[in-house]
Design a protein around this nucleic acid. Structure first.
Length: 209
DNA sequence: CATGGGATTGACT
DNA sequence: GTCAATCCCATGC
């Protein structure tokens, strides 16, 4: 295949996923409600970044009223995105190594977000495996909040991105929600550890351990 | 300006 | 079970 033809194929493919993502993306009203409600509603939905996508199987809710939330300290250079309009991405560096992806929720002025903790790969499995440095048939390709951003190619540059339009979007669940939602305490935090703000699809193998 | 902690992960005992 | 890697940013002087 010639370079020209290859480039053309790539370009058409890129336009196709952008149009698809734009038409399917959840709008700002989805995020503009109590963060607990959104955290549960996001289970089964699809995170798409370009040609890679996965089904959300685990989330956690964070709210400025509790101490584990970055927004608890008020508006700072780091947290201003959390207090901004709903439907944007809040991406921050964790432990100096990982980028963690959140969806900003509730009305402007409230610091709240849903942390996406695990995905079941849906599209672009080969690209995810390549980015992770594992075999394409590997299990748990996008499980764990640091692993899923690596698999989807999400970085700190995506902080503040609008999730309502490509290239980074969240779409409604592609299939009927035939699963049971389980809840429990959040993982890996040192403050407000007792609050049951973690949500996951009961029994799903992609949920973090 | 210096310091210390952290919404993690993978390797190792 | 333990531990290190590694960097953004909140805090305090």
């Amino acid at each position: 295949m010639s370079n020209v033809a290859e480039g053309d194929r790539r370009r058409r493919s890129s336009v196709a996923w952008q149009a698809k993502a734009r038409s399917r993306a959840l709008g700002a009203p989805f995020y503009k409600r109590p963060v607990l409600e959104v955290a549960e509603a996001m289970l089964g939905c699809v995170v798409r970044h370009g040609p890679t996508a996965g089904v959300i199987v685990e989330t956690e809710a964070y709210h400025d009223s509790e101490a584990a939330c970055h927004a608890h300290v008020g508006v700072t250079p780091r947290t201003h995105i959390l207090f901004g309009p709903p439907g944007r991405a809040y991406v921050y560096r964790s432990y100096g190594i990982h980028a963690l992806l959140n969806a900003v929720c509730e009305r402007e002025g409230v610091g709240a977000a849903v942390l996406i903790r695990a995905l079941e790969p849906l599209e672009g499995r080969a690209a995810m495996a390549r980015r992770r440095g594992v075999a394409p048939e590997a299990r748990r390709l996008a499980s764990g909040p640091g692993n899923l951003t690596r698999a989807l190619g999400i970085s700190l540059r995506d902080n503040g991105a609008e999730l309502t339009r490509p290239p980074l979007t969240i779409e409604p669940a592609p299939a009927p929600r035939r699963f049971r939602v389980a809840t429990g305490p959040r993982i890996g935090i040192t403050r407000a550890v007792e609050l049951p703000l973690r949500f996951w699809i009961a029994g799903h193998p992609g949920v973090s351990r």
